[in-house]
Amino acid sequence: MRAFTTLTALVAPLDRANIDTDAIIPKQFLKSIRRAGFGPYLFDEWRYLDHGEPDMDCTNRPLNQDFVLNKAQYKGAQILLTRENFGCGSSREHAPWALEDYGFRAIIAPSFADIFFNNCFKNGILPIVLPAEIVDRLFNEMADGYRLTIDLQAQTITTPSGQAIGFNVDENRRYRLLNGLDDIALSLQHADKIKAYEAERAKRAPWLFKDA
């Protein structure tokens, strides 16, 4: 996994609450057995005027010019600013895969759905929770070329005017993201504990340990 340390990048505002994972990446693209290549289909139903299908070449598809990510001034944005309950709905990790493949490295919102939030950390994306009034202020402050600097070590966001906004990430998640660590390798360091747990639990619940 790619580590996340600091990022200074353009912000794209997606002013809508309760954006669900079906909107982030519609189900027809979930048929892929690969992990990459979802970026061109991110927000497919909002981004294009036609109906997208897997493996479609998106370069000549008709764009919905009203959709924020299609506006020239947000080209190259790596930070998504959005509203509450972002990522609600299904557990599909294709949602953070699509966001990451598109180029987003951080998402700022007043709240996230739990599974999506968790999935972001597995893919080098930093989801940042800020109070609704601060998110509101950032939306109001947005101007052409609006960039933020995010420092995960210091847990601060710095606005163009130099104002610093603090945020919090669980220590364990922060450590893994800062170092781009492989979760499975870390957990397997506890292999002896897992085996000891199994041995002890097998006495309490033998019916769960009669593997055929």
């Binding site: 599909r92 990790e93 968790n118 597995k122 893919n123 979760d183 499975i184 397997l188 292999a191």
Partner: peptide
């Protein structure tokens, strides 16, 4: 869970 966790649960 997401797919990374599916892999994690398989492996550990």
């Amino acid at each position: 869970i997401g797919t990374s966790e599916v892999e994690h649960a398989l492996a550990t």
